[in-house]
Amino acid sequence: MASIDFSAEITQLRSTLSSIEQVTDIEALDAKIVDLETQASAQDLWDDVDNAQKVSAALSHAQSERRRISELASRIEDLEVMVELAAEEDDADTFHEAENELVSIHRTLDELEVRTLLAGEYDERDAVITIRAGAGGVDAADFAEMLMRMYLRWAERHGYASKVMDTSYAEEAGLKSVTFEISAPYAYGTLSVEGGTHRLVRISPFDNQGRRQTSFAAVEVIPLIETTDAIEIPENDLKVDVFRSSGPGGQSVNTTDSAVRMTHLPSGTVVSMQDEKSQIQNRAAALRVMQSRLLLLKKAEEAAERKELAGDVKASWGDQMRSYVLNPYQMVKDLRTEYQEGNPSSVFDGEIDEFIDAGIRWRAEQGKSDS
């Protein structure tokens, strides 16, 4: 006899899936797939490679999202049949199999539910992440490199494309800063909750006396702008310097002045690019990231102005949003959501989905309380 009330659980699963279908707007999604399929079948599609790649990626994502919802509906139906068979034959093994499938369906529904919370203006965009070493000397530089690997491993686990755009190496070890792009549907909306100050506590591998060291790194996440975004930057507002790309320890890895440093004079915003082979390519990449940062800055200023007009004097979240503790105990804890993991190694190896999901839910709740 099953210890779980499968009837109530299946009713709840159907209710949750129905809510997700309403938020997703299945009819609109189906219409979008038909439109993208028409674009993808055009004979001249690949005359514009960039547009072709965007259409193909958008179609693949839309089809995948539709398929996940359809497959979930089928899995719930199959679960109901499995439970009926188990009850008829009083089969403990089948009941156990049904329990495992119930847990799996709940997990998949949770993931889809989180996706429905990504409805921001730029949430669908690719993400540009910049990590900067903070206080803590060489440990902070090493921590910055650990965080870069963590996010790149996360992208790899999900099959998302990533590209390092600029790297500034520290003298002894690690990175002063790094900027990289992650290309995936809703990459910005998903990863934007990772923005903030991250703290590492451990026995420093760079300290001869083996003392515990606390170090910090700042993570910035911005959406990658598209050519349709109306962000015009007057040429007079930009200062562009060119220099040679360099590797660890300042070693030259390029014999031409192909790297570009772009400064937006009114705001003081600086972007460096050295990943591409030519100065023209690095300048174009730098301009896109500069536009992305200025776009986000503009939106932040508008939001701050709205809050001031509304009389909102509530303090925002402080600098430190997550702690990675390796000594005297092992724990990674998000200080906003209270979510924590006891295995820092797996977290640094890219297993951060639970932190991200908790962050997205936390942000949605904050939005409700502020409205």
Rank of each mutant, 00 (worst) to 15 (best):
F348G: 01
I129Q: 08
I131Y: 01
N100T: 08
Q281R: 13
A300Y: 05
I131H: 11
T11G: 11
R283A: 09
H61R: 12
I222K: 02
R322S: 00
E97H: 03
A259I: 04
Q366F: 00
W362A: 09
Y324N: 03
G247I: 02
E338G: 02
S204T: 01
Q39S: 15
A161T: 12
L118P: 11
D334C: 03
D126G: 05
L118Q: 06
R283D: 06
A119S: 14
E124M: 06
L287W: 09
G137K: 06
T16S: 14
R125P: 04
W317L: 11
A218L: 09
N343G: 04
S64Y: 03
Q209N: 12
T16H: 04
D110L: 07
R336W: 11
R153N: 08
G210D: 11
N100A: 08
E80C: 04
E121W: 04
P185V: 10
A73S: 14
S56Y: 03
D241H: 01
L152S: 05
K32W: 07
R107F: 08
E308Y: 03
I280N: 12
E124V: 09
Q330F: 05
T167N: 03
A170R: 08
A98D: 07
E301H: 12
I352Y: 02
S60A: 12
S15M: 12
D35S: 14
R14Q: 12
D370N: 14
M146T: 03
D44V: 15
M82W: 00
T24P: 03
V193R: 00
D166Y: 07
E71H: 10
L191W: 00
L72F: 11
R67F: 05
E301M: 10
K299Q: 13
W317I: 06
V83I: 11
Y169L: 08
F216L: 14
V34Q: 14
L59P: 01
S74M: 09
M331Q: 15
T38H: 09
N327H: 15
D5P: 06
D357G: 04
F243T: 00
R67E: 12
E99K: 10
F348T: 08
D275G: 13
